[in-house]
């Protein structure tokens, strides 16, 4: 399992691994927002938490099809399936590797981009907390989507169509935490809901992903 994790991380950061693409995309989306809605500071500050969440979510979506498709193409998924690792473990490690290479950098980059969108001072803490809690759910749900579409040619668009509705609750509660945090309101309820969704997804979805992957390898 640890071997698989270190391999995936290594592959992601080497040339052609696509590491940093998500970050660059996140940066570009954030830069485009003021061009779209105008440079007025008050407006930007108001929409900053939501825009940062949407940017992070889209950046996450961008790299989902790499989670399993590469291993599928070069045959290592077949070989992994015959290795002494449970399929549930494989998909969990894949999701974890995706989070470390995509989700975690997004969490760290978000406050910097918050400056660009004039996020109010008290909003930074909750923005980071909400993303740190929410992005693991995005990775795990995304892995489920990737497992569903792994055998398909041109599965990328279908993957987005399948995964985006599943992202709705995470986005709503995550952005709500960030928004309330920025507005100086109480964040407990959405924070607990977000944590619940995240932990629930991490605990249960790998079983669904593993089942789906087994069917697709058949």
């Amino acid at each position: 399992m640890i071997a698989l994790l270190t391999r995936d991380l290594q592959l992601a950061v080497r040339a052609g691994g696509g590491f940093g693409l998500g970050l660059a995309f996140f940066l570009i989306v954030t830069v485009l927002v003021p061009f779209g809605v105008g440079p007025e500071t008050g407006l930007l500050a108001r929409i900053a938490p939501g825009m940062l969440w949407i940017g992070a979510l889209l950046a996450c979506l961008l790299s989902l099809d790499r989670i399993l498709a590469l291993d599928w193409e070069d045959g290592s998924l077949d070989l992994l399936a015959t290795a002494p690792l449970p399929m549930e473990g494989i998909v969990s490690v894949k999701a974890l590797a995706h989070w470390i290479t995509t989700g975690l950098p997004l969490v760290l980059l978000a406050p910097v981009l918050g400056v660009l969108l004039s996020l109010p001072m008290q909003g930074y803490l909750w923005l980071v907390v909400s993303l740190a809690l929410g992005t693991p759910a995005l990775s795990v749900i995304g892995t489920f989507g990737a497992a569903l579409t792994v055998g398909l040619k041109r599965g990328g668009l279908l993957l987005s169509l399948l995964v985006l509705p599943l992202y709705v609750p995470t986005l709503i509660f995550g952005a709500e935490v960030a928004r309330r945090g920025a507005g100086g309101l109480a964040v407990e309820t959405p924070l607990l809901m977000l944590a619940g969704i995240s932990f629930g997804a991490i605990a249960l979805l790998p079983f669904a992903s593993a089942a789906v992957l087994r069917i697709n390898l058949r």
Partner: peptide, 8 residues
């Protein structure tokens, strides 16, 4: 979950 999230 979305139903409850949206209500909230």
């Amino acid at each position: 979950l979305s139903r409850y999230a949206v209500n909230f």
